[in-house]
Simulated assay, not measured.
Amino acid sequence: MRKAVGAAALVMSAVLLTGCGVLDGGSAKSDSGESASEKHKSSAKKKDKWGPPQTHEVTLEAKGEGTPQIDWMADTNHFGKVTLPWKKAVKVELKGAQLKLGIPLYITPQAVPGPDGQYVYPSCAIEVDGKQVAENAGGTSTKGCKYTLKGD
């Protein structure tokens, strides 16, 4: 019984591989007449429809005094305690659909005690390639700074 099942499995594997074009050197043609390697090349061209990757210099900044927790995103998401004033510059690469849809950039500083003892939110700013794209004067505003970076 084992030999019969093994032989059947071997025959079935050969039939399936032949039907998929693997046993004939991988040159099987699709319904459109393209070989597997031609199809792969054409799909690689489709991926390039967004254009070549772009790298941007992103600078995030929080001003004021104190040591707040800051949540920020540019290259990846980060969270930690910092000493103000604080500034971070990173290179961000956009590729594929990110060129059209964009990626979020943000900085959200937590409140710190102000000169009068009341808690205030530090001001913040975001620059992309040296151009300011977002700013928040701080004070009572909790929204931080946000921007969607897209390709040129």
Rank of each mutant, 00 (worst) to 15 (best):
K3D: 14
A4E: 15
A4H: 11
V5A: 12
G6D: 11
A7G: 09
A8Y: 03
V11L: 14
M12R: 13
A14I: 13
A14Q: 07
L17C: 04
T18A: 14
L23H: 15
L23W: 10
L23T: 15
D24S: 11
D24W: 14
D24M: 13
G25C: 08
G26P: 01
G26Q: 02
A28I: 08
K29S: 12
K29F: 09
D31R: 09
S32C: 13
E34L: 06
S35N: 05
A36N: 02
S37F: 11
S37E: 11
S43N: 08
A44C: 10
A44R: 08
K45F: 03
K45M: 07
D48R: 09
W50I: 02
G51D: 03
Q54D: 08
H56T: 11
H56F: 15
H56A: 04
E57C: 08
T59R: 04
T59M: 05
E61I: 03
G64Y: 03
G66M: 07
G66H: 04
Q69R: 03
Q69A: 03
D71Y: 13
M73T: 07
M73D: 04
M73N: 07
A74T: 06
A74Y: 06
D75N: 05
T76D: 15
T76R: 12
N77D: 10
N77C: 04
H78A: 07
H78D: 07
F79W: 08
G80R: 01
K81I: 02
K81F: 06
T83R: 14
T83P: 03
L84E: 09
P85Q: 03
K87S: 06
K88Q: 15
A89G: 00
V90A: 03
K91T: 05
V92P: 06
L94F: 04
K95V: 05
G96L: 02
Q98P: 02
L99V: 07
L99Y: 07
K100W: 00
G102R: 06
G102N: 15
G102S: 14
G102D: 09
L105W: 09
A111D: 05
P113V: 01
G114Y: 00
P115L: 10
G117A: 09
Y119H: 09
S123G: 08
A125R: 12
A125W: 01
I126N: 00
I126M: 00
I126C: 00
I126W: 00
D129S: 12
Q132M: 12
A134V: 05
E135H: 12
N136S: 06
N136A: 07
A137H: 06
G138N: 00
G139W: 14
S141N: 15
K143P: 01
C145M: 03
Y147T: 02
T148F: 15
L149T: 00
L149S: 00
G151Y: 04
D152K: 11
